[in-house]
């Protein structure tokens, strides 16, 4: 199965199906994950999109897709996927469309929609066992409007609406667990900077039926405040520090696909981002840094037993 196709980075496709010319920011971690994903899914797909940065992928008359696309609204992309999926099934059933014209239905939303406004429509789509793939590009804030905090924003991050000395007071919502609690066939976290792990998961997901949900951690140079060239490095640091666990939920179990043996201190990850700069200057905020570290440690302690 999937493990066989992508054994090493050498096996990754280099088709580069998603073409350039989009208005996404230079160094966009979400676009990076998307193009890696698209190479695996292929062009027999219809992306059903919710309001977010990626809405601007297709601006009349320009589209980077070699397959299809439908923009819906912020809250209801999974419902749009429902309509498309059902219609395709009906057409095939009625022999009004040859099966080879079928498309894989892929929802594409940011964390604003996934963690918040669209959570109810996603939950319901899982309830209905809709056969679809959901990709959330998680850049931990409302990126398209200038990075205000969302339910995906991590504790203490400075955003356009949490500018105080302690940053965002809340904690990043555990969407993975919320999704997994619905017991769908597949849930996984990925990041573009770990392309092999990503490829294996996307392939596994596309071989399954029913609701399959992916959260793609998406370093955002503009919203997080770092040089675009560090985009991949920050993704890697998120994994190495244990801030972004790579895992999957399948057959009722959560499996960590990459356990960082010796975790890099979270501050290595934090200090390269403008949104956490207030933790280091003008004065080091030991309390907040320790709190963030302690939460990461507690998570992994539980994982490692």
């Amino acid at each position: 199965m999937s493990e066989e196709t992508f054994k090493s980075v050498k096996d990754l496709p280099s088709t580069r199906l998603l073409c350039g010319g989009t208005p996404m920011c230079s160094g966009c971690g979400a676009l990076e994950a998307l193009h890696e994903i698209y190479d695996i899914l292929g062009k027999k797909t219809v992306f059903v999109n919710a309001a977010g940065c990626m809405t601007l992928l297709s601006i009349y008359p320009f589209t980077p897709f070699r397959g299809s696309w439908l923009y819906t609204a912020m809250a209801s992309a999974p419902a749009g996927a429902q309509g498309v999926r059902d219609a395709l099934d009906i057409l095939i059933e009625k022999k009004q469309m040859p099966p080879e014209d079928d498309l894989q239905v892929v929802v594409l939303t940011g964390d604003g929609a996934a963690y918040g406004m669209g959570l109810s429509s996603t939950s319901a789509a899982i309830d209905r066992e809709l056969d679809f793939l959901y990709i959330c590009y998680d850049n931990e804030g409302y990126g398209n409007t200038g990075q205000q905090f969302s339910a995906a924003t991590p504790h203490a991050a400075k955003t356009a609406t949490s500018k105080g000395p302690r940053g965002y007071p809340g904690y990043k919502k555990d969407l993975f667990s919320i999704w997994a609690a619905h017991k769908p066939p597949y849930v996984a976290t990925v990041v573009g900077s770990e392309p092999l792990d990503l490829a294996k998961k996307i392939e596994k997901a596309s071989e399954l039926k029913g609701p399959r949900l992916i959260i793609a951690f998406s370093p955002c140079p503009t919203g997080w405040g770092f040089d675009p060239k560090l985009s991949v490095e920050i993704g890697k640091l998120a994994v190495k520090s244990g801030v972004w666990p790579l895992k999957e939920y399948i057959d009722g179990k959560v499996i960590h696909t990459k356990i960082p043996r010796k975790r890099v201190p979270v501050e290595e990850y934090l200090k390269v981002q403008g949104r956490f700069s207030h933790l280091f200057s003008p004065k080091r905020n030991e309390e907040l840094i320790s709190e963030i570290q302690a939460r990461v440690d507690a998570y992994w302690k539980e994982v490692e037993g």
Binding site: L70, T72, A79, G80, V84, A124
Partner: peptide, 17 residues
């Protein structure tokens, strides 16, 4: 669906298919 907002989205998406 779980709401009319989603219902009309699904309706439009199916018609568009």
């Amino acid at each position: 669906l779980e709401s009319e907002h989603s219902m009309v989205t699904a309706a439009g998406a199916a018609a568009a298919t």
